[in-house]
Amino acid sequence: MVVDDEVEQVYVSGDHRGSGVADTLLSEAERQIKANGYDEAWLAAATGNARARRFYERSGWTDSGAFDYPATTDDGPIPVPCHRYVKKL
């Protein structure tokens, strides 16, 4: 899902990991962000999700530091420890 210049919620089921579908999804998100006039995209990767963080780094994204992502719940936002990844488009 793309919201403005942010890539949100990239998920691939375990059965499809390693198939290239994540590369396709991320490339499409990057294309959409660029088409919407942004020259940089960003996404949040949970601090403990080493697999995803390695994937983003292999895909040309750069870790620009830790921050708390405000995840929305029925009871209001809660901070989730994440790393902000950015990529020039």
Rank of each mutant, 00 (worst) to 15 (best):
R51G: 05
T47M: 01
R53F: 07
A44D: 09
G20W: 04
L26N: 14
R53T: 08
S27H: 15
A41Y: 03
R54C: 04
E28N: 14
A45P: 09
A41V: 05
N49W: 10
Q32W: 08
W42T: 01
A22L: 02
I33V: 12
T24V: 11
G18V: 01
K34H: 14
E28W: 14
R53G: 11
Q32H: 09
S19K: 05
Y56G: 07
A29T: 03
E28K: 15
A29C: 09
T47N: 01
L26M: 15
G18T: 01
W42N: 02
G37R: 10
A50I: 08
S27E: 14
A50K: 01
G48I: 12
K34Y: 14
R31L: 12
A41D: 03
L43P: 06
A52Y: 06
G37H: 13
G20E: 00
G48L: 13
V21C: 01
G18I: 01
R17C: 01
R31C: 05
L26F: 09
V21T: 03
A50N: 04
A44R: 07
K34W: 14
N36A: 15
K34A: 15
T47L: 03
R31Y: 10
G18C: 02
R53A: 11
K34Q: 14
W42H: 09
E28C: 12
F55I: 04
A41P: 03
G37I: 14
V21Y: 04
E40A: 05
A45D: 10
R31M: 10
G20L: 02
W42E: 00
A45G: 13
F55K: 05
E57W: 08
K34N: 12
E30P: 02
G48A: 09
A45Y: 08
G48F: 15
W42V: 02
A46V: 11
Y38S: 05
E28S: 13
A41M: 03
E28F: 14
E30H: 07
